[in-house]
Nucleic acid binder design. Structure first.
Lengths: 157, 157
DNA sequence: AGTATATAGTTTATATGCGAACTATTATAA
DNA sequence: TTATAATAGTTCGCATATAAACTATATACT
């Protein structure tokens, strides 16, 4: 019943399922705020760092990822990727390149500047993540992943 | 290691803590999408329904909640509450009223229209929540709440 | 009492998020 | 082969999110 006190709620949790859902939801919300505060030190948002991460680890056939692939991986609408890539391209962290055979695709690649920034920020970020998750031991982390995966599976039906 | 396959990621998870954090994060993201799809049936967003819920269950001394109180409870910036209340007031679901002694406060109250809508939507919403969380038994729900609470406690430091 | 500080709410600029309508390009089908 | 489908990306309108600068009001302090 922790969230009740945290949020000053006396009522409104109709049952445990609802309360658990809100726990997950508000925890993610707080994670995002912390991540945004962290990345702002480096002139980035959490979403922008996610894009750097994807491009750093996943080159794809054409040496980059299409905007549709990025959209699928980040679980966000394609319209967002257009503006996200616009901003990141303007900042010089990524570039749009042509696909070798299909002119519909924009292949997005990290620039040297983007790669350098990622390699600078990523280890510090992982340190922060470890600290945030430090109250949970390995067994708990595994249980947490197992349970949230069950929920996602249900949501995908 | 489920998220890796889900998101088509081959690398990028540096350790279990990071993977667990992203599990929570993407689960909440999917919950939000589902909630938004559900509430759009009734011309609402999930955020707007949250506001109705708060106002329905928490009257406060003045028979409503100040925007600052709403901001605290919803864990969002006060600037958002201004525009949220603007939209909800325009739609006729809430009203801004004066505080009896302190002219700085807007006391936000449900209108009859807002109360009626909430009472119509809420039971159907709770049904959906139970379905989404149905893969977890009571013990798992409690564990999930306990673990996310530990994370929030760490985030509040 | 009068000044400084704190609090509530608004506005602006910016970065997300969605769905729907649009263009360009490619693939499919008749 | 030509008409139709599907796919990739963009643009638009809207709803959310933040921080920062602003006004109005209330409180605290000397």
């Amino acid at each position: 019943m922790v969230l009740k006190e945290e949020l000053g709620l006396k009522q409104g949790f109709v049952d445990t399922a609802h309360e658990a859902l809100l726990n997950v939801y508000y925890t993610a919300s707080m994670m995002k705020k912390r991540a945004d505060a962290f990345f702002s030190q480096f002139g980035l948002t959490d979403v922008q760092f996610n894009l750097l991460t994807l491009l750093y680890f996943q080159s794809g056939d054409e040496g980059g990822l299409s905007q549709a692939q990025i959209s699928d991986m980040m679980l966000v609408n394609r319209a967002n990727i257009t503006s996200l890539v616009d901003r990141m391209e303007k900042a010089g962290f990524v570039e749009r390149t042509a696909h070798s055979r299909d002119r519909r695709f924009n292949i997005i690649k990290l620039t040297t500047k983007g790669r350098t920034l990622f390699e600078k920020v990523q280890p510090i970020y992982i340190e922060q993540v470890r600290k945030v998750m430090s109250p949970l031991n390995q067994t708990e982390l595994n249980n947490l992943m197992r349970m949230t995966e069950k929920i996602r599976k249900e949501l995908r039906r």
